[in-house]
Design a protein around this nucleic acid. Structure first.
Length: 673
RNA sequence: GCUGCUGUAGCUCAGUGGUAGAGCGCGUCCUUGGUAAGGACGAGGUCAUGGGUUCAAAUCCCAUCAGCAGCUCCA
């Protein structure tokens, strides 16, 4: 008699010996078909495993749907990959080899570095190992013995990891497959046969334990699926994602250019890209006006003293462009025989005079606030600016529009009383909501950064911090969306709310941010006169709902895959003539449309219509208006919609009305697929 | 900043130790057509930059710059 207990608690009894597969069959044919392997008392077993008779055993049948099934298989595949590398390359030191979204990696260190040319050999060896079909066997060893095992294997990273990262573990588990033995928490699939299809993807450097001061390892990225079809689909998805990369689309659609001669991370906006950017600025400006913001302009540089007061110089000097040293000060230094080395030292110590390219806008806005005496009756004061700032980002970090060295924040600084803080934060969140809503972007995450209760690095009164954190939480709640609360993620000067989205290849980027600041008002000694006729210190809110125009548009290009909604499209419509005979009518329609405020161009080349349509389609033109003799006769245009294709002939006035209403509504139309 | 890869025509890319190729785009001409590529001809490149090896370098080596992936960082 065999008895199994299923995860739902139900018991199943069998008269004779049964395998896992038999149990699955007894539950349902679908389950029997989908079953990958079983788990008895959390240990993976093959489907043909004969369940021992006697006392009831806990059995779980694992299918593809099991959230851990794929990860378990991939991790086993990582072991196979590491084993294959060890067979091919001498002196391989293993570090970590976890599963990640979309695959897995293994960090290794070899005597001679791996290159992508080694991939075919590694994959071949992996296939061999899988064909051997040796099981993954778990071995548990007490601490001291485990360390000795790793020492015997000359696996220094594993020894270190047991001694530091796993310092509290009394017993450690290993998994063995053939000659390959690795410290591993498990679990693993019962046999390598379950590895359906795998592929090595790329190789990159990674620091041991993520520490820049430690050894740099080679990280071998790979992926695996249960079937070849799934792997192929995944690879195709990666290819598709590359096509919507904003750097690719930006070039193809002529939206921006980054020029080697101008400098790394410095964006040149083409007329088309500038148009999109301007439209977005107009859009947000309109809402700022409604919310009672005042727009200001401030220069791109400021005296070093300004940033010494704010604390940004020299403390954050590494992430700023080198200061512009004051002319007279520089010649004075030269006369004194100052060497370059000495000048550099003076800079490091912050002991120089001159100007800084502004790395942020707040000090300028603060000085505007301080330029007049303020009463509590004036508050809140909301100063906004599309302010361009410059930061010396690490060269390896720069790329596309998402990480640049010069960028324009849709910045504003609100000077508020403690009582006003909550309401103003809600107003800031409202703006973010309006923007994401207008773009149809729902796939973003919200993080509320709170202070780390164990740290003393924070400035400001703890009681006020509690109030501000609570205000941030309440403001975040008004989004009607889940948000995470991250202790320790607050800036040292105040709590914050961040908005994060993913790009086409899954990288996360912070867009909007709302931050409370107790620090700068203090450093600049800001005051307003309260109703008690005494000076009080205002609280500052920094906020940028887009984050930066560059990053936001980068993400937006990928979000729309280059197909901007009509109101944002640089070229909203294009007149296509069927032949040269319709050019005159085409030009008449073109000017009629333009007079109605529609941004149109004409394609009067002597190409065939099919070619013109193809070009327009590839350029993501929202509406193509085909004009031929029939249209000229009837006063119509034959509309071809970017999404829905041929809409037939309609009178020009009706087409204009249709476009105008779509523009006014800021309609976001997506291909329904 | 670190590791690896890459840099050839406006774009996408092929190519080999012996004086440079394709497709697209561009120009001219032919074609006058109704919903995703009509045809012919032509122009266009110090093969990223600077060194080195060699009789000979775009090709091999080194450095620099830039791009890509990842790591680290991001007030």
């Amino acid at each position: 008699m065999t008895t199994v207990k299923l995860p739902d608690g139900s018991l199943k009894e069998f008269d004779s010996t049964v395998s896992v597969k038999d149990v699955a069959k007894s539950i349902g044919s679908r389950l029997a078909k989908d079953a990958l392997w079983g788990e008895i008392d959390l240990q993976p077993v093959e489907l043909d495993y004969e369940i021992p008779e006697g006392a009831p055993v806990n059995l779980k049948i694992i299918t593809k749907k099991d959230p851990n099934a794929l990860a378990t298989m991939r991790h086993s595949c990582a072991h196979v990959m590491a084993r294959a590398v060890m067979r091919i390359k001498p002196g391989v030191q293993l570090a970590f080899g976890p599963t990640i979204d979309g695959g897995f990696y293994y960090d290794v260190e070899c005597d001679e570095p791996l290159t992508e040319e080694d991939f075919p050999a590694i994959e071949k060896e992996m296939a061999k190992i899988i064909a051997l079909d040796e099981p993954f066997e778990r071995l548990d060893r007490p601490r001291a013995e485990a360390i000795q095992v790793c020492k015997d294997l000359s696996q220094d990273f594993k020894v270190e990891h047991i001694e530091t990262g796993l310092a509290d573990d009394e017993s450690l588990s290993f998994y063995q497959q053939g000659e390959f033995l690795d410290l591993c928490r498990g679990p693993h699939i019962p046999s390598p046969r379950r590895i359906g299809a795998f592929k090595l993807l790329s190789i990159a450097g990674a620091y041991w334990k993520g520490d820049q001061s430690r050894e740099q390892l080679q990280r071998l990225y790979a992926t695996a699926f249960f079937t070849q079809a799934e792997l192929d689909a995944h690879l195709e998805l990666l290819e598709e994602a590359k096509k919507r990369d904003h750097r690719v689309l930006g070039k193809r659609l002529g939206l921006f250019h980054i020029d080697e001669m101008v400098g790394q991370g410095l964006v040149l906006w083409t007329p088309k890209g500038s148009f999109v950017r301007q439209k977005l600025q107009d859009f947000i400006s309109e809402h700022l006006q409604r919310q009672g913001y005042d727009q200001v302009f401030t220069p791109h540089i400021g005296k070093l003293d300004l940033y010494k007061t704010s604390g940004h110089f020299p403390y954050y000097q590494d992430s700023q462009y080198t200061p512009l040293v004051d002319r007279e000060y520089l010649s004075q230094l030269a006369e004194e025989g100052c060497t370059c080395g000495e000048l550099s030292n003076l800079m490091n110590e912050g002991e120089i005079e001159g100007y800084l390219l502004k790395p942020m806008n707040c000090p300028h806005h603060i000085r505007l606030f301080a330029s007049e005496q303020r009463s509590y009756r004036d508050l809140p004061i909301r100063l906004s600016e599309f302010g361009t700032v410059y930061r010396w980002e690490q060269s390896g970090e720069i790329g596309g529009l998402t990480r640049v060295r010069g960028f324009t924040q849709d910045d504003a600084h609100l000077f508020v009383t403690q009582e006003q803080l909550g309401q103003e934060l809600i107003g800031c969140i409202e703006l973010v909501k309006i923007i994401f809503g207008a773009m149809g972007m729902e796939d973003y995450t919200v993080r509320v950064g709170l202070r780390d209760p164990d740290s003393s690095k924070y400035v400001g009164d703890p009681g006020n911090w509690d109030l501000a954190e609570q205000a941030c939480r309440e403001a975040a709640q008004t989004l009607g969306k889940d948000f995470s609360e991250d202790p320790g993620e607050a800036a040292f000067y105040g709590p914050k709310i961040d908005f994060v989205v993913k790009d086409c290849i899954g990288r996360k980027w912070q867009l909007g941010t709302v931050q409370v600041d107790y620090n700068l008002p203090e450093r600049f000694g800001l005051e307003y006169i309260g109703s008690d006729n005494k000076p009080h210190r205002p609280i500052m809110i920094h906020r940028a709902p887009f984050g930066s125009m560059e990053r936001f548009i980068g993400v937006l290009i990928e979000h729309f895959a280059g197909s901007f909604p009509l109101w944002l499209a640089p070229e909203q419509g294009r007149i296509l003539t069927v032949s040269d005979k319709s050019e005159e009518y085409g030009k008449r329609v073109e000017s009629q449309m333009r007079n109605a405020g529609i941004r149109v161009k004409g394609d009067y080349r002597s190409e065939k219509l099919g070619a013109k349509i193809r070009d327009g389609q590839l350029e993501m033109i929202p509406y193509m208006m085909i004009v031929g003799p029939r249209d000229a006769e009837n006063g119509t245009v034959s509309i071809r919609d970017r999404i829905d294709g041929d809409l037939g002939a309609i009178p020009v006035e009706k087409a204009i009305a249709k476009f105008q209403s779509e523009i006014a509504d800021k309609t976001v139309r997506r291909k329904s697929s």
